[in-house]
Design a protein around this nucleic acid. Structure first.
Lengths: 216, 216
DNA sequence: TAATTAAATTGATTTAAATCAAGAAAGGAT
DNA sequence: ATCCTTTCTTGATTTAAATCAATTTAATTA
């Protein structure tokens, strides 16, 4: 593993990519680089003793919680460059969510103690993180609004458009199973299936397995 | 307005209350103290040019958004000591939510530029804020789980218990209109009314106007 | 590649909560 | 106090999405 690829890993993470190079170099020293997780394996789970944050270097993963009766709630999807766990870097409580690799994943991670020490020395890093957190809070609110004021079809369309924007193309592959997407949108797989079909009949989208094309 | 009350204002804000005194003193210098907003008035609204954060010194306020067809989504409720707007302190975008005083309010505020300058000098403050943000993100996830895996009645009960914990008593006054509470929980006022009634019949709570008592 | 398991789709039915409607209670304004 | 407006409640009805059920399709595994 070359130093170059280590810097590259951090540079992919949206949360770090705009940091000045010297800061990145410092971060490299406290980062565990590119651990491999095969598809289906758990990257994090409650009581695993892990307290840091992770960055997805390649592959996809999903974050979910399980309630007492085993019901799963999909809280988010991670793609290349996404990070999660920052919210645990500052609390003493253990995380309570599962993170599962939905494809083979390479993952970079850093632990709480190292990171906190680093934050104390580097105000720039704090500001970057604060900015990122702010964005996430705004996203969370947006999601609440979406769920509160949109019906099934509009939620699906809204998500697909967002995904299209993210992909920078009208054509893209769903980054995870429809089952999980349904849950993420607060729907059942059956309802999602019907809505996708209905949108296709209306000519708004073209669906081909996991491949989606937005028309207009 | 005495210096003492100015410090007191910051000390009430959960986000600042654990800061060391010297830091609080510094913050006081960039804070606008105790602006008065009568019940019903808007503390913040889109395009008002305000870009900072606020702390509620007394009274209650609600945060909500309006979509194109005028539908309101209640995003949160602010009580004494609560703060909001931190998420805007780091982005250049203007805020898009309304904040309305639901009672007469005294509000402290600080603007983006002053605050950012201060952050650069005081890493401790960044850490405190990061911690707070982390908590909020965790709360937002909790809320998603609640909405995804609870029916109307459980959502209401869950909220009431949370409020009871917050109030530190089994008896408390709802901090805002049932109409707004319903919206906040993703319900209609009719459904909330029925669920409160049903919980009372089941002996779980006692309802008297805005006054709620939890039994057991 | 066949066998097995999981995911996705399609149809029929149920249901929880929304909507519609109307009256009662509470808050503000004059 | 009286009027007017908004909120709250209660009942009847509708409806969007969930659930139940059965295939088809796709993905894993042996």
């Amino acid at each position: 593993m070359t130093k170059h690829s280590e810097i590259a890993c951090l540079s992919k993470a949206s949360i770090f990519k705009n940091l000045p190079l010297p800061l990145k170099k410092k971060l490299v020293t406290i980062t565990s680089h590119q651990d491999f997780f095969p598809k289906g394996s758990l990257i994090r789970q409650p009581l695993d003793g892990q307290d840091g944050m992770i960055v997805i270097d390649s592959g996809h993963a999903k974050i979910y919680s399980l309630n007492e009766d085993g019901k799963e709630t999909v809280l988010g999807i991670l793609s290349k460059g996404d990070s999660t766990g920052q919210e645990n870097l500052f609390s003493q409580k253990d995380h309570e969510n599962f993170i599962q690799a939905t494809e083979d994943c390479l993952v970079c991670s850093m632990n709480r103690r190292d990171f906190q020490a680093m934050l104390n020395e580097t105000p720039d890093l704090s500001l970057t993180l604060l900015n990122d957190f702010g964005q996430r809070l705004i996203m969370a609110e947006k999601n609440t609004i979406r769920r509160n004021s949109m019906n099934a079809q509009d939620r699906v369309l809204d998500y697909l458009k967002e995904e299209g924007t993210r992909a920078g193309s009208t054509s893209f592959t769903l980054p995870f199973k429809k089952k999980d997407l349904a849950n993420f949108l607060g729907l059942t797989p059956e309802t999602l299936s019907r809505q996708l079909n209905s949108l296709q009949v209306a000519g708004q989208i073209t669906v081909n397995g996991q491949q989606i094309t937005l028309n207009n």
